[in-house]
Design a protein around this nucleic acid. Sequence first.
DNA 1: TGCGGAATTG
DNA 2: CAATTCCGCA
Length: 606
Amino acid sequence: MKTAGDSGFAFPEWAYKPESSPGSRQIQLWHFILELLRKEEYHDVIAWQGDYGEFVIKDPDEVARLWGARKCKPQMNYDKLSRALRYYYNKRILHKTKGKRFTYKFNFNKLVLVNYPFIDMGSAGSSVPQSAPPVPSGVGTHFRFPPSTPSDVLSPNGEELRSPGVFASVARRAARGSVSDCSDGTSVASELEEVGISASDERPAERAFRSLFLPHHPRLTHDSLFRMYGVPPPAPVPFPASPLPGGPLLPPQLSPALSMTSTPTSHLPYTPSPSLASPMPGSRFSFSPEDMKRYLQAHAQSVYNYHLSPRAFPHYPSIVVPQPQRPDKGLAGPAAGTHFAAHPLHHQQPEELHPSPFKFKLQPPPLGRKHRDVPPPSAAGHVPSGTASTGLFVGECGSATGQGSNSNSGSGGPPKIKVEPVSDIESEEEVEVTDISEDDDNCDVFAPSHCNGGPALLPCPDGIIDNEEEDLEEDVFKTPAAPPSGSVSGMAIGVGMTLPGLKAEPREGSPSSPGGTQCIPLKLRFKRRWSEDQRMEAESEEAEDKKSRAEKEEPSAREAQPQRVQPNDEGRSPVSLAAPLGAGQRRVSSELQKATAQLSLENNGC
DNA sequence: TGCGGAATTG
DNA sequence: CAATTCCGCA
């Protein structure tokens, strides 16, 4: 249970909004939740529950109190806090676990997106429909980190790219090997203070991770960084799919997956994440090939394990991706590649395989439910009755927020419909997803397969992986114009993974495509996948967001999925579910944990 | 309990 | 923007 991970916590710079002035970083609720979750001290108030990234708030009031303290909002209460939490639903950062009180679930994908903007979650999205990243579907492209800056958040000139102030500091610290400095003494919440983590505690992967993300600081060369961290080759099983037993927190390992970035190469103008400006500095990383290789290796591993997008390391064909280490599959995986292939790295980097620039918005549109009608605004003013209950902590918030200002005049304004930004357009497509959404928790993030009803997936428990892999691939190709064959094949081959159907990987025959596609030409396959993927995303998103039902036809496949194990309330034991969902879940939780860990690790200093 | 709209805030 | 605050609805 408790592991070193607990030891420190702090927020990495990226956890804050870059835009905000240096001194004013404000913590976001989910960060805070994550923070609490990883600290045992607070296990009585909030703790992970199950394997899904779910957590339960055992003591809502206390959590609210803490939150209020942190934000200097003495008036905070669970009601409000929960509103904020709910607010995350739309952002897809969180979900409510239905049926369980005070239980919510993190949407891993989103988190990753937010935290690791560089990572390409596209595949994840596809494989994990539910949380498919909001992408302007109009383009038809799949989600990927666009080279261009997202308009919604960034200024058009892409200036943000250049201002990595934040990151720089991180880099510096990393370089130093220690993470501790929080210049601004915002450490208000003393309650949370933690022990600093020594650099030594960090796992190599993490370090690697971090370093990868570091901007090319003038003074720090990546070399030095890497050197410092000496990223070791990925362990054979970096992320054991250990079933996170009830006590979920694993050691703070960071998944390389998270860390990965898709394109280290220089010219990639990376798009910063929507909500967070991505720290990508000048937008160029310069790592030495070796380092990159290692890193990528690790990433690959994780990709496999977590079934993240391979796109993440597209440009390094020489890297061999280890086979997933599922115990069950005896395939030759590990041998093949656990460690990097010693191929020479030719990184030519190519590039940009991502032609499609589009921005993804973290906060997609709320969707449909909204414009219902316009009720008369007549409201009466309420007077804040004094709720005094919480006065304790937080003396620092000196200014009591004034209350009492309210007046609203707008009455009966024109019905305004919020038009959601494109991003969710896809959502427009409606699909009928069975109601799985209900307990679906699984569906969401972690159990994509079911969600999209791909029957194919269900068949073999183990197969999941395969499917996932496929999903991964698809991502790769999703790009519209993407030149699948060329680059892809190269990569696939080089990597030795992807494309199960293709080259090697006869495995259980990739079931995924409806029509059994193993032998289909790549291109075709991709195409197919792509569409499927899109559909999936749409579905999942749709399904979740709105239960719209229309339905997109879908050629053959769509069938009700067999009922999956149903975890009853408490009954769910992560381990037990290992079957189909298990893998995904586990994966996710690991990721989550890692993310959490990452959060914490970065700056314990505060 | 939980949801989500609407207005407000910093 | 991300809450915070308030509230009506299930």
